[in-house]
Amino acid sequence: MSLPVAARMSRVRPNAIRELLRLGDDPAIVSFGGGYPDPTLFPVDELAAVYADLLTPAHANTLQYTASVGMPRLREQVAERLTKDGMTCDADDLLVVQGGQQGLDLVAKMLLDPGDLVLTENPTFLGALIAFNPYEPRYLTVPMDDEGLDTDALEALLAASPANVPKFLYTVPEFQNPTGVSLSLRRREHLVELAGRFGFVVLEDTPYRELRYEGERLPTLRSLAPDGRVIHLGSFSKILAPSMRLGWVLADRDVLGALTLLKTATDTQCSTLNMAATSAYLDRYDIDAHIGRICASYRHKRDVALAGVARWFPSSVRFTRAQGGLFTWATFPEGFDTAAFMSGRMIPEAKVAWVPGGTFFPVHEESNHARMSFSALPDDRLEDGLERLGALLREELGD
């Protein structure tokens, strides 16, 4: 039978990245598509010891329900880490969520009515658009450059229509997905000032913040906003293990109260076992040393990837050089269609895939970009895929 689905389902479309990840089942394809951590870097032995200890009669309560807001000890540990990072808080300022993605969904559910205005970077994280779209917002996009979101352009947009106040601005200030670019300090300060002046909320998404492997660590937007106007999202997915599905929301307590009610309605709580395991890991092991090892590996992979690009790709292709994170962003000459090129030539001829860039633009798609992730591939596969792809691009575009 044909179900009488809600009108909002017209905004729920297949996810281009998820469709591409199916290619991972084909060992012949070198995929630069998924923003996956390197599985060889997961702390498997330590987590095995933690789970083995928890799955005993003495710790049977880790298989029980717990508070919707999250286990108290884990929230205390996250609060300690965030306080050291300049965001003074305690356990009661935090909600544990199913990865940062659930945080995006809950904030959108709390704030958006159909037709409300959301500001985003251009391009922006596809997963955020997937979370926001069912709530039927309008989008206004802000251009980016090497310093991240262009706050001067944002100010001009806001001043041009002062009555059209956005509900919130969404940003990934560190090693942005998809571009890899970070927001400069002067623009962070300007963004927070604009939020106060024009009266909108900032949704700060920081899944890659800990993955800095060069350059100066910058303050979070939350730490720069004394009035609580910034809702801060973080995640263990990129620094511990994504399958544990744990992240957090840091916000003022009245905001957290509303988000907790929405989370209770959605899934009651995150996995007690996974929260207990994460907490035990933080108690027993040095996660900062683990993050240091991850960052060293990703810096090496980035350098291998960019060296391959310089060696094999046409000079007309431009790439970002991230100081952290998992991605580089490729820009091709005007008129080049990265989606058509992937389906028509890359996959059938070179057995290589990327994420076409058009899907990251909320309003007007730009077809001449692609997101490429270097994080999950070993060096030999990384270089082999880049060499194959480079040969095909030189054939298509020339040198």
Rank of each mutant, 00 (worst) to 15 (best):
L157H: 11
S161D: 15
P134Y: 11
F168E: 00
P134F: 11
P143I: 05
Y170Q: 06
K167Y: 03
T141R: 05
P162C: 09
M144K: 14
D150S: 05
Y170W: 12
V165R: 15
L169F: 13
A131C: 13
Y170G: 07
E147P: 00
I130F: 07
L154V: 03
K167I: 04
A131N: 11
T151S: 09
A159Y: 01
N164M: 02
M144E: 11
A156T: 13
P162Y: 10
A153F: 00
D152T: 08
P173E: 08
V172P: 03
Y170T: 01
L158S: 02
D145K: 07
A163G: 05
D152I: 11
A153G: 00
K167G: 05
E174W: 08
F175R: 00
A128G: 02
R138K: 14
T171D: 04
E147W: 06
A159E: 12
Y170S: 04
D150H: 04
P162W: 08
A131D: 02
L169H: 04
E147T: 06
E155H: 06
L154S: 03
F132C: 02
A163N: 06
N133K: 13
F175K: 02
D146S: 15
A163E: 10
E155D: 14
N164W: 06
L149E: 05
P166Q: 10
D152P: 00
V142R: 04
L149T: 05
L169S: 02
N164Q: 09
A163H: 10
P173M: 10
T151A: 14
V165L: 09
P166V: 09
A156C: 00
L140W: 10
L140D: 07
D146C: 12
S161M: 08
P137D: 13
Y139K: 13
A156I: 05
P162M: 07
D152A: 14
F132D: 00
T141V: 15
F168K: 03
F168D: 01
I130H: 03
N133R: 14
E147A: 10
V165H: 05
N133M: 11
D146E: 15
P143N: 12
A160D: 12
V172M: 15
E136Q: 15
L158F: 02
L154A: 01
Y139M: 13
A156Y: 07
E136G: 11
A163V: 03
V165K: 15
D146N: 13
L129I: 11
